[in-house]
């Protein structure tokens, strides 16, 4: 019998992991002096559920295991989060995180395929992740490997035309193996999404493209896990979990302030305050 490749942890440990991920993101971006702190923070619980609560099947000691589930970070600017998760999962030593954005470091500013184990795609120009996921699924159908593909996209990213090209194709190919998780934190670089280039009615859009949709509080690890498990039962159509999140979640003065989109915390006092807030939960 094949061993269970998923990790499942009790609730307290998951909350603890989310804290560790936020601290790692904070430390890595501050050391680098730049990086997308708040975009990383909003997705922390989503990836905690995916990687550490029995959903994603992966082998850190065999990153290219052909039957692994794929996780594609389409919102590539959340690279600090991706790296923190992969380090926590055991793909590479945590020390690598402290070389984020340095010359010669495999921990590049945005994810680059082939530089770090566990990174499934080169992203950073938005809109490409779902298409890549469809390719992995169609490929898996040919090679006879059964796996699922999870793609994390941002809300501003839904403004890209390719998102809707791929939405159409996923539905056409009935890719029930594909699940998109949308980090709906309601902010993009220049301001609130609704003000800059509104997406609503967003659920209607995805449904009209043939997707099965669900919504969840993106910071409730238990609820996210439950929703993902229920979406896995859907047949013959791709699924999207629209996760309502708070941009910058975990640090009060970063939350909902879109000017933090591509910034790191540089002020030592602010750093201490942020660290304290994360630790106290």
């Amino acid at each position: 019998m094949e061993k269970d490749e998923t990790t499942k942890l009790p609730q307290e440990e998951l909350t603890e992991i989310a804290k560790i991920l936020r601290l790692d993101i904070l430390k890595a971006t501050t050391r680098a002096g730049s990086g997308h702190l708040s975009s990383s923070f909003s997705s922390v619980e989503l990836l905690t559920a995916l990687f550490f609560n029995g959903i994603l099947r992966y082998r850190p000691d065999e990153p290219l295991w052909p039957k692994r589930d794929r996780f594609i970070m389409s919102k590539g600017h959340a690279a600090p989060l991706l790296y923190a998760v992969l380090a926590k999962a055991g793909y590479f030593p945590k020390e690598e995180l402290w070389r984020l954005r340095e010359a010669g470091s495999p921990v590049q500013g945005h994810p680059i395929l082939g530089k770090m184990p566990g990174v499934e795609a080169t992203t950073g120009s938005l809109g490409q992740g779902i298409s890549l996921g469809i390719g992995h699924i169609l490929g898996g159908r040919i090679t006879g490997k059964k796996y699922r593909v999870y793609v994390l996209i941002g809300d501003g990213e839904c403004q890209a035309g390719q998102i809707w090209e791929s939405a159409m194709a996923a539905s056409h190919f009935k890719t029930h193996e594909l699940m998109v998780i949308l980090d709906y934190n309601k902010f993009q670089e220049m301001g609130p999404v609704s003000r800059e280039m509104g997406l609503e009615p967003l659920i209607d859009k995805w449904q009209s493209f043939g997707w099965y949709t669900a919504e969840v509080d993106g910071h409730d690890i238990g609820a996210v896990t439950k929703k993902i498990h229920s979406l896995q039962e859907i047949k013959d159509q791709p699924t999207i979990l629209v996760a309502h999140t708070v941009k910058g979640k975990g640090v009060s003065f970063v939350e909902q302030d879109y000017t933090w989109h591509g910034r790191a915390i540089k002020d030592p006092e602010q750093y201490k305050a942020a660290e304290k807030e994360i630790l106290c939960g």
């Binding site: 499934e120 298409s131 390719g135 040919i142």
Partner: peptide, 21 residues
């Protein structure tokens, strides 16, 4: 046939390469 959508076409192909094809 991915249709008249070259961005999607290229990335679906890339994903298939990622799947070992």
């Amino acid at each position: 046939n991915i249709g008249i959508a070259e961005s999607n076409l290229v990335c679906i192909g890339a994903g298939m390469a990622g799947a070992g094809l």
